[in-house]
């Protein structure tokens, strides 16, 4: 089987490898070395952005597994992240250690996600999207009104995570924790996609009737996709809750779901590396706009009053722009850039 230029695979297993060449392995290793050392050279604010990116990567990768690879549109991912955040927070407030609480949060979210995933057997496409939209709104209502458990609109104050007596109370310490979970989430999803389940997900996305007729149990695999995706969303929620140390229902409104959907669209549907690009892009976008607004404030003194509306507007414009002009997202641009350098003087 012919792979990329100069690569020749003799077995399927070899073709499925995550990294094909030593060059790939060494660049990835180099990238992680730089990433691990980076926080020491960055300001605390920049490290906090890295933390947010790590958490967004977990959420985006998990949503991409469900929506991009399995084709089940979910408009409720923000609320699922919220379930994880509240479940983890409630456990640690009751004296649980952080790691079991985080796992419990993930498991609770997986359960909730699977309950809302049950209709996916009957509902497809737009109907499923509307059902998950209902899930999103109902869950936020529950966060808001089950005051005895969630604290309602006042929210919930939390402590930084403590693992085996070691407290992750600064951005720098937190960075390594979130990076660990982000890398794990990426590896988990990447590897799921290489297994039988992953191929089943893709088959269901491409055409569910053909998938069923070649013996894929639709119900089982759809539920599995909802379960894994929601579990990771719950982990992202738990980390986010303990990183910001405060949660309230407004954080998990439908805007968050849209944000995550935008990440996987801008990054590239069904692509793991694309979810990472999308998460980085959309976390840094408001910062970049903030810098531009600051630069422009000399010319337009009242720009700060319009900033919020402009930020949303530009977010929407970028989303529409990507959908119209680059539906395969940043992942495709990345491929094009790589092949450009690989083939450099010869374009074909």
């Amino acid at each position: 089987m012919q792979g990329k230029c100069g690569l020749f695979f003799t077995t399927y297993a070899k073709e499925c490898q995550v990294f094909h060449t030593d060059f790939q392995k060494s660049t990835v290793a180099l990238f992680f070395l730089v990433l691990l050392a980076a926080p020491f050279f960055l300001s605390s604010y920049q490290v906090s952005l890295l933390n947010l990116i790590n958490i967004a990567v977990i959420g985006a990768v998990s949503l991409n597994l469900l929506t991009g690879s399995c084709g089940q549109i979910s408009l409720g991912h923000g609320a699922f992240i919220g379930v994880g955040a509240y479940a983890t927070g409630i456990c640690t407030l009751n004296g649980w250690p952080f790691l079991p609480a985080l796992l419990f949060g993930g498991a609770t979210t997986a359960l909730v996600g699977m309950i809302f995933g049950i209709p996916s057997l009957r509902l497809k496409g737009i109907y499923l999207a509307i059902a998950t939209l209902a899930a999103q709104l109902i869950l936020v209502y529950i966060f808001m009104h089950w005051t005895s458990v969630t604290g309602g609109a006042i929210g919930m104050g939390l402590d930084p995570p403590v693992i085996l007596g070691y407290s992750f109370d600064t951005d720098l310490k937190m960075f390594y924790l979130t990076l660990f979970f982000a890398v794990s989430a990426v590896l988990i999803v990447k590897n799921i996609l290489r297994t039988k389940s992953g191929r089943a997900f893709v088959a269901i996305r491409d055409f569910h009737l053909s998938a069923e007729s070649v013996g894929i149990n639709l119900f089982r695999y759809k539920l599995q996709a909802f379960g894994v995706s929601s579990f990771l969303a719950g982990i992202a929620g738990g980390l986010w809750a303990h990183y910001t140390m405060y949660i309230n229902p407004e954080q998990f409104e439908i805007g968050l779901s849209i944000q995550y959907l935008a990440m996987i669209i801008i990054g590239g549907l069904g692509s793991v590396i694309g979810s990472v690009f999308g998460a980085v892009f959309l976390t840094l976008l408001p910062e970049a706009l903030g810098i531009v607004a600051n630069l422009l404030s000399g010319f337009f003194p009242d720009i700060s009053t319009y900033f919020l509306a402009m930020r949303d507007g530009i977010f929407g414009l970028i989303l529409v722009f990507f959908l119209i002009f680059e539906p395969d997202g940043l992942a495709r641009r990345w491929q094009l850039a790589k092949s450009y350098f690989k083939l450099h003087p010869f374009a074909h």
Binding site: I258, I265, L317, L319
Partner: peptide
Amino acid sequence: PIISVIMVTIGLSTV
């Protein structure tokens, strides 16, 4: 695909 159509109208609503 349907997800793109949904997202384009969501983007439109934000704008």
